[in-house]
């Protein structure tokens, strides 16, 4: 049962909320309780833009349970315009046409579900930034 875990992660998955250290101004996604850079414990919530460029990626052809309908699909590390790198699935594209450096933007999508009667899990995913 992933309900509590998914619910706890919803600020990150639904709104891409990150923590910005009030002392050294480094941004962490997901947020932290203690800044690993300066040890400060004060953070402000910032919403990430969801826009950035593809840093690196891999193509999943043998998908785990819950993701088989999406295969083949890409999972990549995206360097956001805020300067931080985050992991995400890349959808709405031919994964074999992706190249590092491609501009991407985030969209709200279904991640997977717990079968036909279980909870549906939503999250951000990345898509090629075509201005739409």
């Amino acid at each position: 049962m992933n309900v509590p875990k998914h619910w706890r992660e919803s600020p990150q998955r639904y709104r891409m909320e990150a923590g910005k250290c009030r002392k050294c101004e480094r941004i962490f996604f997901p947020g932290r309780l203690v800044c690993p850079e300066c040890g400060h414990t004060g953070f402000d919530m910032v919403k990430l833009s969801g826009k950035g460029k593809l840093h690196t990626f891999t193509v999943i052809r043998t998908a785990p349970s819950g993701f088989t309908d999406f295969a083949p699909y890409a999972v990549g590390i995206v360097e956001l315009d805020e300067g931080i790198r985050i992991l995400g699935q890349i959808t709405d594209c031919d994964p074999d046409s992706l190249q590092t450096g491609d501009r991407l933007t985030s969209k709200f999508r279904r991640m997977n579900d717990e079968g036909k009667t279980g909870m549906i899990m939503y999250s951000y995913k990345f898509v090629p930034d075509n201005g739409i």
Binding site: F70, R109, R110, I120
Partner: peptide
């Protein structure tokens, strides 16, 4: 709709 799109995802992206 793509396999990862439904009424809720379309609604959220339009609402944003």
């Amino acid at each position: 709709p793509a396999p990862d799109e439904d009424c809720a995802t379309l609604a959220v992206n339009a609402a944003r």
